[in-house]
Design a protein around this nucleic acid. Sequence first.
DNA 1: TTGTAAGCGTTATCAT
DNA 2: ATGATAACGCTTACAA
Lengths: 340, 340
Amino acid sequence: MAITIKDVAKQANVAPSTVSRVIANSPRISETTKKRVRDAMDDLGYHPNFIARSLASQSTKVIGLVLPHSSGVFFQNPFFSEVIQGLSEGVHENHYALQMTSGKTEFDSYEGVVQMVQGGRVDGIILLYSMVDDKIISYLSKRNFPFVVIGKPFDLVDKITHVDNDNYMAAKEATDYIIGLGHNKIGFIGGSPSLTVTIDRLQGYKEALKASNIELNEDYIIHEDFLREGGQEAVKELLRRTIPPTALLVTDDLMAVGVVNSLTEMEIDIPNKVSIVSFNNALFAEMSRPPLTSIDINIKELGYQAVSSLIQLLKNENEPVKRIIIPHRLVIRQSCGVAP
Amino acid sequence: MAITIKDVAKQANVAPSTVSRVIANSPRISETTKKRVRDAMDDLGYHPNFIARSLASQSTKVIGLVLPHSSGVFFQNPFFSEVIQGLSEGVHENHYALQMTSGKTEFDSYEGVVQMVQGGRVDGIILLYSMVDDKIISYLSKRNFPFVVIGKPFDLVDKITHVDNDNYMAAKEATDYIIGLGHNKIGFIGGSPSLTVTIDRLQGYKEALKASNIELNEDYIIHEDFLREGGQEAVKELLRRTIPPTALLVTDDLMAVGVVNSLTEMEIDIPNKVSIVSFNNALFAEMSRPPLTSIDINIKELGYQAVSSLIQLLKNENEPVKRIIIPHRLVIRQSCGVAP
DNA sequence: TTGTAAGCGTTATCAT
DNA sequence: ATGATAACGCTTACAA
């Protein structure tokens, strides 16, 4: 059995509670005893038991992470690594630990969250996605359990702290950029329509068209998985239209890579025949031939800020609900040209 | 306060210990009381408190993950997502949770591990890397704490359960393949020489040369970070040699992408002027222009098997030390040609 | 400033 | 087959 607080107490000739106070660096302990206790701790190689501490203090210093339930897809997207990087950094700075839960089905994920929450495993939760009608969000809200979502919650937007980009504006700007090049037959290739990020970007796209008096063509809108295969499927579909689009707004780099693959295979020139703007500005965008014009959404920062705001929430009982918007920027490369 | 075992006990008219036994599905409880207790649990919406359970049973059902301390670099490599995917799957199947620890410096990581271990946060640990002279490995070995490493430990190979590829053979096969195309000026671009994976692959490379009576040229061997930038640096260096190599063995796809970038920039034709074989077979390899011949090492399986063997270790006090080798395979694409 | 003792919610060892 | 009760290692009133 490991060294406990009692062993230290005995060695330092004090009560266990005194040792506990020294650990917490309570000001009500004299410097001399503090020193004696600390020496004893070093001497014995004492390390506090987190589990016992958690049980007594009802706080674990662990943050739970909820991945989308189709995590297979999610893992393949560079988005994953990047958020984790930001999360990991934030968590480390604040001396918290990170615990993951995945799950194949929605129910699976839900169960995982319930275990984390009711099992007392975590102090707070970060959702790495946000979709309409989400059971997990309802559950957490109902229980009043501290959580923040990365992205925009579909319901209760003003009741849930979240970290997001202004996806509406980002998509509008991207579309405007394409329109500025003279295009008016612009396709939209997005992820699942139940993800709020898709909804917002679609809206921005529509708004841009409207503002430029370009008629919306529902046939130009396609939804697929955030995967390369999704992009491939989508282009094939779009090229079947009587008048195919001359430009594409693709809401994810990995999809865009699929789009580029398909077009290249069919020997359709990018950007001379088809222009592409994509989102996320992953390394893929830069590596693609031609390199993709893409909207950088600062994914790492999304993660970092999510941790920061969750920890604020944890510290401050009645921290106000916050909505944090991470800035985006259009990175122009070589996938867009003037309309043919 | 949440529903506890006592509340359930009261509601079902039994002792708390009985409820505990029902949770553990002890055979020594009659079916009738089991049913009564379970009904009470459902009724009250009871969920066991993991923390309390952990404290009492001295087992957390959590596995700790140790990332290399230069995690910034690590996160950018698709290797990360892929192992995590395998780990996550394994962990989920076995009803364990995954907890991450990063750390900027080696000392940082070490501290994180000590906290996990002595803090009783985790039942076992998986190391996502392996390098020479590793403090963490020494620490875990000394304490006899259950852990497995992904990759090959440098010391105590036959005392530490690990999941690895046969990197020696893989590199040898890759080099043989290049030699078979008539090359005899073959460069080696590897990661940090303190990583065992680099050491093994270098050895395989050397062995292949030797077997074909090709003289080893130390000037053809470069070590850089597992990053695109690393690859870029390395090629530039190699092209400064009086007789530059006509083929390159690059031990990571992301580096290889950097290599391709640099060569393309200098208008050096791949594969006609320089051939490339890389490792890991990430999506990058396929996406690269030209697509890269790469060795698939089945990263996801590395993760999955690591979890499985760790859990075996946890279940069985004296489970024998294991060495699990995940098969690799050469995926031939278009980055290699006959020697000029 | 420090000690005593009662929890925190389980599991596990004795009894019965 | 079930119930009391003592751990598990810590925090935190309440006393002194």
